[in-house]
């Protein structure tokens, strides 16, 4: 018997091992009891490596999603950047169009409010190449019934006058040009003078005697004596005054933004514009509302009535346009 076992040692071992496991199975089934010790050690042996594997996999996954996959994110980012650039460009175009529509709306509203005076909207298409010359080029010309010495205004105030007319364009001399002159008067005191360009952005009001009390902020209107601008259009306001001999020097801040003009109106006649009663900007100032910003220069002051009287009755108190032909006839 022992010889058989020794000859078939491996088979004997096989049978023993299998039998042992069968008994183990039978034990578990009979007792309905698990061999917890084996499971415990099997898990204890493998679980540390499993934790390490999970950590490694999560790191690899994180690296993949955080770096390798970002290859596509980079391409998408480039595409979105390009799209953003296009949208910004489109937005800028739309904003420009909206601003243009706004300006044209104001111009149209102004023109509609003053139907008594024929006027033509024009677009500023260029400026002078000469730095010393303050002129603009508009897209209206002889074909549009534009003639020399027509007034050019905006709803904010006067701009200048037409000095050259071409078939499809016209040149506008701004009131800041040194060759420019506009008959003017103070809205409050009705004292007359002439607005003369100086070649810099700040024109001056001349021919106002030193005795005349002029306060900064006082509103200046066109007097109509130059036969170019209808009476009562807003020119600007007083910046400051300096006594001089024989006249004081008054620096004027133009109401129209002459450095950023895009659309203007050309008055086709000398017809006076009726004062506008809306809240929109208007170069036409009602006489009753044309009070100076400074209360000292208000018509309520004792001197105001006398000054107002001098406008019509006393040429000596206020220089008449006829006395200043160079200024009144630019």
């Amino acid at each position: 018997m022992q010889g058989i076992f020794s000859r078939n040692r491996s088979l004997t071992l096989l049978a023993s091992v299998v039998l042992a496991q069968v008994l183990l199975l039978a034990f578990q089934i009979k007792r309905a009891h698990d061999v917890r010790l084996i499971r415990y050690w099997a898990v204890e042996i493998v679980s540390p490596a499993e934790r390490g594997g999970s950590w490694t996999f999560s790191k690899i996954g994180g690296f993949w999603s955080g770096y390798i996959s970002l290859r596509h994110a980079h391409g998408e980012n480039e595409r979105l950047r390009a799209e953003l650039g296009q949208l910004r460009l489109r937005n800028a175009t739309l904003e420009t169009q909206a601003a243009e529509a706004q300006r044209l709306s104001v111009l149209l509203g102004f023109r509609d409010a003053h139907t008594e005076a024929p006027m033509l909207a024009a677009q500023v298409i260029g400026a002078s190449a000469d730095p010393a010359s303050h002129t603009l080029l508009i897209n209206r010309g002889e074909r549009d019934r534009i003639r020399r010495n027509m007034a050019v205004i905006t709803p904010d105030g006067i701009v200048g006058k037409i000095v050259e007319v071409f078939p499809a364009t016209a040149q506008v001399l701004l009131l800041t040009d040194k060759d420019s002159g506009v008959g003017a008067l103070f809205a409050g005191t009705r004292t007359h003078g002439v607005i003369k360009g100086t070649g810099d952005p700040v024109p001056r009001m001349e021919y106002v005697v030193n005795d005349e009390k002029v306060q900064p902020g006082e509103v200046i209107l066109t007097s109509g004596e130059d036969r170019i601008f209808p009476k009562g259009l807003l020119i600007g306001s007083v910046m400051d005054t300096v006594p001089g001999y024989p006249f004081q020097t008054i620096r004027v801040s133009p109401s129209a933004r002459l450095d950023r003009l895009e659309d203007v109106l050309v008055l086709l006649s000398l017809q006076e514009l009726a004062p506008k009663q809306t809240g929109e900007p208007s170069p036409v100032v009602p006489e009753a509302a044309a009070a100076p910003a400074n209360p000292a220069a208000a018509p309520a002051s004792p001197s105001a009535p006398s000054k107002r009287n001098t406008e019509t009755s006393s040429p000596s108190a206020t220089p008449a346009p006829a006395a200043k032909p160079t200024a009144a006839q630019p």
């Binding site: 299998v18 496991q21 069968v22 183990l24 199975l25 578990q28 089934i29 698990d34 061999v35 084996i38 499971r39």
Partner: peptide, 8 residues
Amino acid sequence: SPIGLYGI
């Protein structure tokens, strides 16, 4: 599964 199934 009981211990021994895969073992056998």
